[in-house]
Amino acid sequence: MPDTFNSDISLKVSNVTKRFGDFTAVEDLSFDVRAGRVFGFLGPNGAGKTTTIRMIVGITAPDEGSISLFGEPVSYATQNRIGYLPEERGLYKKMKVVDQLKYFAELKGVSRSEADKKIDFWLDRMGLGEWKKAKTTDLSKGMQQKIQFISTVLHDPDLLILDEPFSGLDPVNVEFMIDVLSEFRTQQKTVIFSTHLMSTAERLCHDIILINKSRKVVGGSLREVKESYGTNLIAFRGSNADSVIANRSLVDRVVSHADEQELHLAAGVDTQAVLRAMIESGANVMKFEITEPSLNDIFIEKVTGAANGTLTAPVEKNL
């Protein structure tokens, strides 16, 4: 691993286009991923995420544009530096855990003795030491998930691409995996993290890109992206405020959560004016907090284009 700064670019995607017949899966997509950062690759299904990832991993080639990894154009040679956990995961059903891991390691060019060592280390690390000789069919879904993860890190990749890495894991294991991932970050390794779960992305990612319908919608550091969305969002809990909430000249959109509401103010409306209006209308205000937009909000707004109307369903359900 060469000495790198946080700002060093490990992956550069430049003006990439990929078509399948008449269908354009990815159009003129450009972004940089910096070493030692967690990069969130976000977008709804069918946005072109998997196609883009496949091009980065070298499974398919772009029709136009270029992708370079650590300054080298992506090719079969760069595959050994990438660890890829696809969204659609699979293991050989009737093969022993250790045998599959050895095979996957060998395919990444890891020597036999090295692979043995790494496999033991990672199985212990994941608490699966005793399952070494078990067959896939004997493992729970969460265990299979972890085995799959091990197979992506055995060759000590510099770039880790994880597509929905937490699906199928219980909350305890999700925390555990997040710990493992943060270790990668401290080793100056780059993680590309593709997900639908905006809350997880918000927690883990330094930088994000949101793509929709084959194109980039928004990108940059998490902070930049959020700040560009302004501060016209209010977390509200209380009663008798319906008249104010329903006033479209003040509140543009309402998202209801279990015990509170998220009020998206109309353009140019002062937050204090809204609070005043509520109190004057006799509302019982228990919580009134100016918050920054969540990634979820940005996602909904950008993907569904729902700038008006009331959205009450959690966004994950729609995806």
Partner: peptide, 17 residues
């Protein structure tokens, strides 16, 4: 078919030609 059905193909293709 097994490699296709279980999606192992994707991992294999990301490792070798």
């Amino acid at each position: 078919v097994e490699e296709k059905e279980t999606r192992i193909a994707e991992i294999l293709f990301s490792s070798a030609r």
